[in-house]
């Protein structure tokens, strides 16, 4: 019988750990979250591909009925907000917390603009008689975009929290891993939209 004890070499720290904690942006927990969210979006994409294969005509005509300008504006807004987050990180690392807060405030404005545009787009759809029950393409469209909308809300919460922590002096040029975690989550939201926009609005 193996009588391994806790002080045996088996339980020593490995010399080369699989994950180097210094090379994980933010913290490990946020990456569990990010990959979980990306898995959720992956399921939506797989559903899109399967529905597209089974109902090709609906997916060929669907994008033509959507408001391309709204989708484009939301893409521009999300990419810009990601850029603002990246600028905020550089500002904080340069020991300019006030500038970092200003960049993050612009990110929040981007999030708010996204909500307004999405609201107007849904209203425009409803006025044109496009609902979740119209056909399979629009069912996929509403489920995917509304799910993404919820993630923008979570991400905005993370950005608000980062702003409060910078203002409180808890995130500094040297110590700001929590801010990096919130930033990575926001970038993930942008990345998901980078796939959603062409699939729903462009590809026919």
């Amino acid at each position: 019988m193996n009588t391994q004890t806790l002080d045996s070499p088996l339980f020593d720290e490995p010399e080369n750990p699989v994950f180097d904690p210094k090379k994980i942006p933010g913290n490990p927990a946020i990456w569990v979250g990010i990959f979980s969210e990306l898995t959720e979006f992956a399921l939506f994409f797989v559903i899109y591909f399967l529905a597209r294969a089974h109902y090709p005509e609906e997916f060929k005509q669907g994008p033509l009925q959507l408001h391309t300008l709204a989708g484009t504006l939301n893409t521009l807004v999300l990419i810009s907000s990601s850029y603002f987050v990246a600028k905020a990180i550089f500002a904080l690392r340069d020991n300019r917390p006030d500038t970092a807060v200003r960049w993050l405030s612009l990110t929040l404005c981007g999030g708010a603009a996204y909500f307004i545009i999405k609201y107007l787009e849904y209203q425009w759809n409803f006025a044109a008689g496009i609902t979740i029950n119209t056909n399979n393409f629009f069912a996929v469209y509403y489920y995917t975009t509304f799910n993404h909308l919820l993630h923008v809300a979570w991400g905005s919460g993370g950005i608000i929290w980062a702003i409060t922590q910078i203002k409180a002096g808890n995130f500094t040029a040297e110590k700001h891993s929590g801010f990096i975690a919130a930033a990575c989550y926001w970038h993930m939201i942008d990345l998901a939209w980078i796939v959603i926009f062409p699939l729903l609005y462009v590809l026919r």
Partner: peptide, 19 residues
């Protein structure tokens, strides 16, 4: 677009290769 965001905005080039 995804590569640009990952490499430059997220700055993941120096991160864990798994990520």
């Amino acid at each position: 677009k995804a590569r640009l965001v990952i490499d430059h905005f997220m700055d993941l080039k120096g991160a864990s290769p798994y990520i």
